[in-house]
């Protein structure tokens, strides 16, 4: 039982990193990514392959995972983010499909069987194989990511991002380089998802493409919307709820995606600010543009 609770806690931590990073894209840059699981997967595979084939230590693997995912995010964001917000959703959805295809077709990624025997993290000779230690590592990293995100959101750059989300033209007039900001935040979020992937790979020690498909992207998206777009605390709540609830309702596993879909539509119509996004900012963001569209 304790082992199971620890397992849930570790998964929750990983999900918090994913939800917070996606929220930076949705709630702060005002863009939708449907391929967040692809960056998560890239991080997991890069980290696992480096550990398995080159025997690199865990911190190096994790750094490489973040860099690789961030680099892919940059490559995807550069052509797309200069355009309308809708494009990124489709491009990232397509990117998710491509990454899935590559993972399934390449020999080095093990195809549908994936990779096995990924070593547990060892830092300064200390093994993190025991669950309590891994949980400590996860909590540490999650807090680090949260602190970073909170600092970013409160900084000048965070205000610039919110300005872009609320009214892009006005932000541009105020001298904010809007494409550069959007690309930077998308790259950062992709890198954070890569870190989460690395953490997952070295915890689970066995990965296959199934864990990084559209289903996972949708799960993370639901966490962000449920918690509230633009609310970091909301993302934490969303991640906790949507990690724990499915475990409690295991017998209804088949209805999970149906419930997520219904949840998204209903929330957006009746409570678009989510559970914890009740602050002024989110409301203002959702009400904007009323004059323009009718």
């Amino acid at each position: 039982m304790t082992a199971y609770l620890l397992h849930l806690a570790i998964l929750t931590g990983i999900h918090i990193i994913l939800a917070v990073s996606l929220n930076l894209i949705i709630g702060y840059a005002g863009q939708v990514s449907l391929g967040h699981a692809a960056f998560y997967g890239i991080g997991a595979y890069v980290s696992a392959l480096l550990a398995l084939h080159l025997g690199l230590p865990f911190p190096a693997c994790m750094a490489a995972a973040g860099l690789a995912a961030g680099f892919c995010g940059l490559g995807l964001g550069l052509p797309t983010l200069r355009l309308k917000e809708d494009y990124l959703a489709i491009v990232t959805l397509g990117f998710g499909v491509i990454v899935d295809l590559i993972l399934l077709n390449l020999e080095i990624t093990g195809g549908p069987d994936g990779l096995v025997g990924i070593p547990a993290p060892v830092i300064f000779g200390l093994s993190f194989r025991p669950q309590p230690r891994f949980l400590a590592l996860t909590v540490l990293l999650t807090l680090l990511v949260l602190t970073l995100a909170a600092a970013l959101v409160r900084s000048y750059h965070g205000r610039a991002l919110r300005a872009i989300r609320d009214h892009e033209t006005t932000a541009q007039v105020l001298g904010i380089n809007t494409p550069a900001y959007k690309i930077a935040v998308f790259t950062l979020a992709a890198a954070l998802a890569g870190l989460a992937g690395s953490l997952y790979a070295h915890y689970i020690t066995f990965i296959n493409p199934e864990s990084f498909g559209l289903h996972t992207s949708i799960l993370v998206l639901s966490m962000v919307i449920l918690g509230g777009m633009g609310s970091l605390a909301g993302s934490v709540a969303g991640a906790v709820i949507l990690t724990v609830l499915p475990e409690l309702f295991r017998q209804f596993k088949d209805y999970q995606d149906l419930a997520y879909g219904a949840l998204l539509v209903t929330l957006l119509i009746f409570r678009p600010q989510g559970l914890l996004g009740g602050g002024q900012l989110s409301l203002k963001f959702l009400r904007k543009g009323e004059e323009g569209r009718g």
Partner: peptide
């Protein structure tokens, strides 16, 4: 329609939700 007039992100997200809903409904 209920979302006309909100940030363009919102109807996009609700359409994604509807798409997931319909797909999983068909699966069931």
């Amino acid at each position: 329609r209920p979302l006309r007039g909100s940030h363009p992100l919102v109807p996009l997200l609700s359409a994604i939700g509807a798409s997931i809903f319909l797909q999983s409904l068909a699966l069931l």
